[in-house]
Amino acid sequence: MNYNKIRLYGAGGHAQIIKSILIHNGISVTDVFDDDPALSHHNFDKIIISTRKEVNGFPHKGDPFIIAIGDNKQRYQVSKFLKSEYSKAIHGSAIIDSSVKIGQGTVVYAGAAIQPNTTVGKHVIINTLASVDHDNIIEDFVHISPNATLCGLVEIGEGTHVGAGAVIIPEIKVGKWCVIGAGAVIIRDVPDFSIVVGNPGKVIKMNTDF
């Protein structure tokens, strides 16, 4: 469903980019919510500082949300309490094949490319100039960072963060809630909860943050 009014939960730098995408697409931002008073000066006309419980009771209930938070764990947590429909934000310069499936709440930044038969889950971030090749499966709450490259037939598990400039070669499966370091080159499957760095990528420890 297409919407012309969107609400944001989150008021940091990621939210500012989403706002820019929405304006580029002719969509207005009606409300911006956050629970951090330190963000009240950011580039928005008004930020509603509220508890996570209060946000569900505000007006404009018909307007869908985008969870405008870059951190995967926080985006996941907000999705569990926020009672709303969700919309997508896809920049007009992104190249997305017509066969691609994209879940609600997902954002695709400027210059990103997503090739045929790829499935992108809910509340995913495909960041600036990221390249996602054919037949990829990207599960919910993933973040593909700027200039990262996913070759064909790659699978990325729920909540995983793929760092800026990382490369994942074809037919690799990366587990859930992993962290792939910036510039890493992944040439073998990655187990759940792994933190991987280097070229070739090596598991240096397990992600205990989730």
Score class of each variant (00 low, 15 high):
Met1His: 07
Asn4Thr: 14
Gly10Asn: 00
His14Ser: 13
Ile17Tyr: 13
Ser20Trp: 14
Thr30Arg: 13
Phe33Glu: 08
Phe33Met: 09
Asp34Leu: 10
Pro37Asn: 09
Pro37Asp: 08
Ala38Glu: 14
Ala38His: 10
His41Thr: 15
Ser50Thr: 14
Thr51Asn: 10
Thr51Lys: 12
Arg52Asn: 15
Asn56Asp: 07
Phe58Thr: 11
His60Ser: 15
Lys61Ile: 13
Gly62Cys: 07
Gly62Asn: 14
Phe65Thr: 14
Ile69Asp: 03
Gln74Phe: 06
Arg75Met: 11
Gln77Asn: 14
Ser79Leu: 08
Phe81Thr: 15
Lys83Leu: 12
Lys88Ala: 00
Ser93Cys: 06
Ala94Thr: 05
Ser98Glu: 14
Ser99Arg: 04
Ser99Thr: 15
Val100Ile: 04
Ile102Thr: 05
Val107Ala: 08
Val108Lys: 07
Gly111Glu: 05
Gly111Ala: 02
Ala112Pro: 06
Ile114Asp: 07
Pro116Gly: 04
Thr119Met: 13
Thr119Arg: 14
Thr119Asn: 15
Thr119Phe: 10
Val124Gly: 02
Val132Pro: 10
Asp135Trp: 07
Ile137Gly: 12
Glu139Val: 11
Asp140Asn: 00
Asp140Thr: 04
Phe141Tyr: 10
Phe141Lys: 06
Val142Lys: 08
Gly152Tyr: 07
Glu155Lys: 14
Glu158Thr: 14
Thr160Ala: 10
Gly163Leu: 04
Ala164Pro: 06
Ala164Asp: 09
Pro170Asp: 06
Pro170Gln: 10
Ile172Glu: 05
Ile172Ser: 00
Ile172Tyr: 11
Trp177Gly: 02
Ile180Val: 01
Ile180Phe: 03
Val190Ser: 01
Gly198Tyr: 02
Gly198Trp: 03
Lys202Val: 15
Ile204Val: 13
Asn207Ala: 00
Phe210Val: 04
